[in-house]
Simulated scan of single mutants.
Amino acid sequence: MKGVGFLVALVLWTLASKLASASDPSPLQDFCVAVNDTKDGVFVNGKLCKDPKLAVPEDFFLPGLNIPGNTSNQVGSMVTQANVQQIPGLNTLGISLVRIDYAPYGGLNPPHTHPRATEILVVAQGTLYVGFVTSNPENRLFTKVLYPGDVFVFPVGLIHFQFNIGHTNAVAFAALSSQNPGVITVANAVFGSHPPINPDLLSKAFQLDNNIVKQLQSRFWWDNN
């Protein structure tokens, strides 16, 4: 029994280690304000770090998330980001934020993934139909209709979406477990890549006529981020 207990403990420790490595590494100092100047910085966690003695309050500040995003585009949504690119003080802290605006009925944040982050979303205004799809082979769809004050979680790396089913503007805020979560919008990546993916490959993968694939590749795929 002692041997079994040791084996279980070893397995749990291994799983915990892998889970810990799946997110941004923990900081080893109070903060590491990102800079682009190699002369005044050191390279840490993907960004150069400003000398802490030169840090100022503005390094940790971003105004304007009260301003609605422009949703007059093909998908009817706009994502306003607050990650390490906009707030240098987020560097090494493993967290970021977005505001998402949706046009009345039909505003869509298209199916996409964040390769480096889990997302937790709260609805501030409107009614959203949201969901995510699990990985192969189940490809199980989890969906929910959200109202103001409701919260929903999208696990790291899984394809997810939000769709405004109300007849007024909708607004949501989301926190992500990475300073730079990244985003891969499925349709944009598959049909809007540069250079284009071979149409023969896509027609076989999606079981579509080759001409339909070429038509999809000729479209302008809007980036709402």
Rank of each mutant, 00 (worst) to 15 (best):
L90N: 05
Q81Y: 05
Q74F: 08
L65Y: 11
C49G: 06
F132A: 03
V35S: 13
I67F: 06
S26F: 11
G69P: 11
G46Q: 07
I159H: 06
N91K: 04
G89E: 03
N36G: 15
D101W: 06
L158W: 13
L97H: 15
A34R: 00
L108Y: 02
T38C: 07
I87T: 02
G64S: 11
V33T: 09
T118R: 03
Q81V: 11
A34T: 01
E58Y: 11
Y129A: 09
A55G: 05
H114E: 00
V122D: 01
P104F: 04
P68E: 12
T143Q: 15
D37E: 13
S77V: 02
P25Y: 04
T38D: 13
V42C: 05
N70V: 11
G94D: 14
H112N: 05
L121Y: 00
T118I: 14
G41N: 06
D51I: 05
P104D: 14
L54R: 12
M78C: 08
K47A: 07
P63G: 07
K53N: 12
E58D: 11
P110R: 08
V133D: 08
H114W: 01
P52A: 10
G157Y: 10
V84E: 01
D59Y: 03
E58W: 10
N45E: 13
D59W: 02
V44M: 09
F61T: 14
R140D: 09
I87H: 01
D40Q: 13
T143E: 15
V75Q: 12
E58K: 15
P68H: 13
N139H: 15
L54F: 14
P88I: 04
Y105D: 10
N136V: 08
R140F: 11
N73D: 10
V75F: 11
F154L: 07
T92L: 07
P111T: 04
A55N: 14
G46H: 08
L65C: 09
K39Q: 08
K50H: 09
A124S: 13
L97T: 07
I67A: 11
P111S: 04
K39L: 12
K50D: 04
L93N: 02
G46D: 09
Q85K: 12
G46I: 05
L97Y: 15
T143D: 09
H112R: 03
P104M: 05
F60Y: 14
L121P: 00
T134M: 11
G107A: 01
Q81G: 10
N83A: 13
L28M: 09
V75E: 07
Q125K: 15
F43I: 06
F154H: 10
V33Q: 01
T113N: 05
T113V: 14
P27G: 02
P25I: 01
G157P: 09
G149V: 04
T71E: 02
V133I: 15
G107Q: 00
T71I: 14
T71Q: 05
Q125H: 10
G41K: 03
D59F: 07
G126T: 01
Y129K: 15
D150P: 04
N136T: 13
R140E: 09
Q81W: 05
R116C: 01
G89A: 04
D51A: 06
A117C: 02
S135K: 08
I67T: 13
V84Y: 00
H112V: 06
N73P: 03
V56S: 10
P148S: 07
T134R: 04
S77Q: 03
L62V: 11
